[in-house]
Each structure stands twice: as C-alpha cells, then as structure tokens.
Design a protein around this nucleic acid. Structure first.
Lengths: 364, 364
DNA sequence: GTTAGCACTTAGAGCACGAGAGTGCTAATA
DNA sequence: TATTAGCACTCTCGTGCTCTAAGTGCTAAC
C-alpha cells in the first residue's frame, strides 16, 4: 500500500521506529546497511535506502550531510512518541529504587520532590526538574499569636494553600496574654479570607483604630502577611543532574550548554512553561515545540502531581531530543503516581492530610 | 638587594604583581615584552626575562611551554593574595547594587542568602555559593499545640537555633482543647531542652503512660520531632551562576567542568569544607590547597556571616585560580558585613531578633 | 517491487608547513 | 657589575592538503 497523504504504511513505520530506536541508543546517524542487519527488517539495504529517501521527503528524517545516515527530524520524534514507541517496562531494580524512595517516608513535600529529582536523574541519566508550582489566590485562613515572653511573640499564619508561615515578632511594647488575645482576634477579623488586593489602606486604618494600644505592631505585621503570601505564590524549581547532560554530544557546544544552564538558573521560563500547560497527562515537548528558544535542541517531559484535586508539584526530565522517551515517561509516571498516592505519615488519613514542616529562622 | 632565601626583593615583587594582574585580566601567559611596556616597570625585556627565570626557579611562576610567557603558579597566587595585591575599592555602581539588596528588606535569611548569591555572581562574574550551615546540638525549647478542628491540630516546635517548624497532625481521635492542653504540657515536660540522644524508649514509654487517652499520637509526634531536628541540623547549599564559569577557558575541558558540576550538585563536600574551616576572616583556598580534588583547578573564597556570635550563613565565590581576588574579596566582605549587621524588620531590635518565616505544606 | 553494483559526496583524521610569540644565551654597553 | 640589544632556538597553532571510510542515489538486472 502506498503511503496515502499523511499516513505511513507499515513498512515505513517499522523502518522509522528502528531508526529512532537505533539513534536513541547509538547517538549517530543510522544508515541503510545497519538497518538491513536488524532482525525485524528483512529487506536489502537498497530498498531501505529508497524508503528512507521517502521518509525524508515526508519530513520524518533528516540527513546531516550527503554521506551520513539519517537522523529523526522533530516531526519524526513526535510521530515516534505518539504512535511508534513501545511501552517501557521498569526493571525490577528500577522499581526497587522507586519504591525505596516512597518507603523512606520523607515528610516534607519539598524534600520529597528534591529526592525524587535526584532519583529520576540517576535512573534516566538526564537532568531532572522538580517544580513547586505557583499557588494562585492564596488567602489566610487562620492567624494565631503565641506568647513567648514579655517582649516577643510568634505569629502563625495558616493559609488556604495549607502552608503555614511563622514569624518571630519583637515588640517595642510589653505584651500580655490579654493584649495578644485581642490582637489575634482583630487580625483574624480583618485579614482572614481576604484576598491580597482587598487589604487596602482604609482596612488597615480601621484595624489600627481597633487596637489603639498596639498600633506599632499592625503595620509590620501586615507587611509580613503580604510577604508571606507573596512567597507562597512564587513557586520554585529544583534542578538535579545537570552534569549528566554533558555526556551527550548534543551539548558539546559550550555556548549552547551555557544558554541552557542560564535558563535553568533563572527558573522563570521553566516555571511559566510548566504552569501554563493544562493537561493532566504526561507532557512531552520536543525541541522546537517549546516556546523557549534555548530548549529547541532539547526535549522536556513533565507531569503534574495532583493530590486531592490540587497540583502539589511537577516533576520533569530535560535532555537531548534524542531521548529515551519511553523509559523516561515510564519513570516519571510511576514516580508521580507514587507521590500523589502516598499516605501521609503523622496518622495517615490517606490522601487528605499530610503535613509539611517548615522552618523559621531567627538570626538573633 | 639580592633575594635572600624565601623573600623576594622589591623588583621581583613588582614584576610578580604585574604578571598576576595581567594574567587575571587577560587570561593568557604573559611575556617579558608585554611587561616592558608596563608603566610601573622601567626595565628592558631582557632584564625582566632574567627576573622571570629566577621567579620560576623559586616556584612562583610556571611556563606552559618553552615559547609561551609565564603564568603564576599556585605559590605565586598565594603570595599575591597574602602580600602583593592592592585592596579593591568597590565602585559607586557596585555599592549601589549591594546596598539596594539590603534595602529590599528581605526577611527570610534563606531568601536573602539566595539573593546575595545572585548578586555576587552578577558582580564578580563567578559562581557564588550560599551556605546555610549545619546547626549542631539543636534542642526544642518550646512546643505549642494549636487546635484547628476536632480532628486536626497544628504542632509548633520552637528550637534553640531559633528555627520554628510546624506540622499538621490529623488525629484519629476527636481532640478537645483540654486534651491538647495536656498533650502540650506533657510534650513540653518530656521533650524540651533534651538533646536527641536522650529521647530514649523509656522516656517515650513514660510519656505515653502519662497520656493514656492519646497514645496513638505520641509515636508519630516524636518521629516528627526527630525529623525536624534532623532537618535543621542538615545544612544547605545554594549555587548561583554556574553558567558564568563557562566563559573562562580554564573550564573548556568538559570532563573537568562536569566533575565540578557534580561536586556542586552533591553539596556534601562543600558543606564539609565550609563547616570545618574555623577562621572568622575571609578564607581563600587556592587550587591544590583544597582537600577536595576536583577543586584543584579552582579557587574558592568564602566568609562566614555571624550574627550575635552564631554563624547564620556562609557566602562564597568559586572560580578559576586566575580569579580577581581583590575584587571578589571586597565584594564578599562587604556583603557579609551588611547581612551580619542588617536590622530586622518586624520592629527592629537591631542585631537581636529578626524573624525568618517558613512554610508548612499540607498536600492533602 | 526488490536488489546488486557503482559512481559520487562528504566529514574527519593525519601530515607538512609557515607564521608568530617568547625564550635563553652571549656579547656589548653604561 | 648590572643592564641591555641581538639572535638563534623552541614550541603552538592555524592552514591547506591528501586519503580513507561511510553512506548515499541511481541504473540496470532480477
């Protein structure tokens, strides 16, 4: 059957698959002779050459130069990922390592994502990204004020994103339990459930008026509330295993690698890219499909981790377009699912409450 | 005056200084002819050649090959840093940027160190390291338990390192204010002021016995306390501007750069190195002086940041041995001092209390 | 439709060669 | 005696060349 427009006949698919597989393994362009030795292909090299020429005409293959073999084009990779590649079965050793991580019962999601990143790097031999995504529209749900001594108290903010922020406050005035009680009550009245934009000057003035004996505390506290919410909003990116990319000839060009490093260090573009993508399934961005220019020679695979309807993280893998897609996808999916379904450890209410600790440094 | 053993006469010093300066600026080996054009040196190239030959014999210079100029040896750099280099005066633009950072009033020390790292990278064009050092012998000073609803409460741990950790706890039993009050009291009695090693099974059993109606809560809480202290202990390292190193020919060798990247990603060796060093002044480790092998082609400059007698951070710069030492040292010192002396912002009690917020994620 | 064979193209390794840079040494100079 | 000019020598690096290996496209035979 001749290739009707846009579709490939079985033989072409088989050859394309073999080329991509071989290229992913070997790195170099693959030639007709090499393919003729392939077990699954019982054609002469001449026939294969003809098919390859057609695949190139259709845009699935490219030729670095006349006397080289063919390499997959981006379109070729895309077709491979969509239609050709076989599912990868994780080996026993890989499963063991993945499960070990989950069994280690790391409590903090941040730390867990970081460890997951390390593990993915190690398993796939590519750079891993672990994203703590932006949390939009965070509001304070509770405020607590803890008495420490007559000059200091601890402010505890519990937010709708279930993140807790704490802060020491040194008070210029002597504080009493009674004062703190009133402070706590008024702060809760005025600041909980209120989106950032609504904390306006009139509101602040009214709040201050209700607390005539501790005016001096109100402004800094509100400033801190602002900052805390901003920090929760902001998102973060952990990168592991950058050094692994240097083993691939694709990154031998120092200038190119440098640009990629810059991208990863700036974090912003990656955070945007990840938060813009909607899909729940594993996303595969191949080379030029990325809106980010410096990623045009790389592929990026990532997947959201959802717990109870909220995106709590994103893990991903960055590597050359010549990436072992099926293995990476299998690894990322396994890990994302494990994290999403992990039981929490302080009295497991499965899938609902899992605390993340945190810290609050007072550099005296 | 001839050079008596170990000491260099003024002329040699002048020549060595000029060589190191020129090498730092230009990158290449520097030759006698080039030096003869130097304003401060009024000698012929032949004389300079003789002096350079002697400096080489003394171990201060090296020659990549016969027909190249000289480059400083590590000993040469060391002598330069100790005795030859002039103090660098920060430019107005540099001072402005440094002061802007401090004026931005970032509250969280972590974030501030991170920003400081970014700024140092940008100002020096080398990689910066920001270390949150290990905190040894942390104990809990207060424990608070906050009622949230009948099934959940918030555990707040205040530690001797002035770091606060919080954690949601989901309770399998219905909690009341009264129960939490007793829980809080007993936890404080048994766990505060106690070093980790002393939290032994008998102690845990006694604690459990005192709280017959909420046994199920005690074990996970203690586990969490362990974890929290462990996390405070552990230290952390932020690296910024790795990409900047790639502009220096010293790192053109991919394999060498890769090893350095690995080192920075593993973090451990750097944390050890930094925490072992005792000195309060700025430390300069040149090439092979480092106990870490992969740093033998790099220099590392770092300085502790102390607030009220405690080391709250370390900032440093990593770059090629051919580093602009005086500029880096000036920048690091300025920033370290600024951070050490910064006023805290929630009701500034200068130099004593400055809160660090924190977060506590509940991924439900 | 498939295959064998052959002419053609190209990258890359290996080599020679010359330019450029810097040295060490010797002899002349102040 | 310390300094300098001059010169032969050494080494790196870039350029241009050839040769080889690999792989193709095309034609003719099966």
């Amino acid at each position: 059957m001749k290739s009707t427009f846009g579709e490939l006949d079985d033989r072409k698919k088989k050859i394309l698959r073999a080329i991509v597989n071989a290229h992913i393994r070997g790195g170099g362009p693959v030639g007709s002779k090499f393919l003729a030795h392939n077990q699954h292909i019982t054609l002469s090299s001449a026939t294969i050459r003809n098919e390859m020429a057609e695949l190139e005409a259709l845009g699935y293959l490219e030729q670095p130069h006349t006397s080289a073999g063919r390499i997959p084009s981006e379109r070729g990779y895309r077709f491979y990922v969509n239609s050709l590649m076989e599912d990868y079965r994780l080996s026993a050793a890989e499963l063991r390592q993945l499960n070990n991580l989950m069994r280690s019962k790391i409590e903090e999601l941040d730390k867990l994502l970081e460890s997951a990143g390390k593990l993915i790097s190690a398993l796939t031999n590519y750079t891993s990204l672990a994203v703590k995504p932006r949390q939009r529209e965070v509001v304070i749900t509770h405020i607590r004020v803890l008495y420490l001594d007559t000059q200091t108290f601890l402010l505890v903010l519990i937010t709708s994103a279930d993140i807790v922020k704490t802060k020491y406050v040194w008070s210029p005035i002597t504080v009493t339990d009674e004062l703190l009680y009133r402070l706590e009550r008024e702060l809760n009245t005025f600041l909980t459930g209120v989106p950032m934009e609504s904390i306006t000057l009139p509101l602040i003035m009214e709040l201050t008026a209700r607390l005539p004996d501790c005016e001096q505390l109100v402004t800094p506290i509100i400033r801190y509330v602002y900052e805390a919410i901003g920090e929760i909003d902001s998102g973060d990116l952990h990168v592991e295993g950058i050094n692994l990319l240097l083993q691939y000839p694709e990154y031998a060009d120092v200038e190119r690698f440098k640009e990629l490093l810059k991208l990863l260090e700036r974090k912003e573009d990656i955070l945007n890219l990840v938060s813009q993508h909607q899909g729940d399934s594993t996303q595969v961005i191949i080379g030029g499909e990325s809106p980010v220019k410096v990623m045009h020679n790389s592929s990026f695979i990532f997947r959201k981790i959802e717990c109870g309807g909220r995106v709590v993280g994103v893990i991903g893998v960055l590597g050359p377009c010549r990436m072992d897609y099926s293995r990476v996808i299998a690894t990322v999916e396994h890990l994302a699912n494990s994290i999403a379904n992990r039981p929490s450890s302080i009295n497991q209410e499965p899938g609902t409450l899992a605390g993340e600790p945190t810290e609050n440094k007072l550099p005296e």
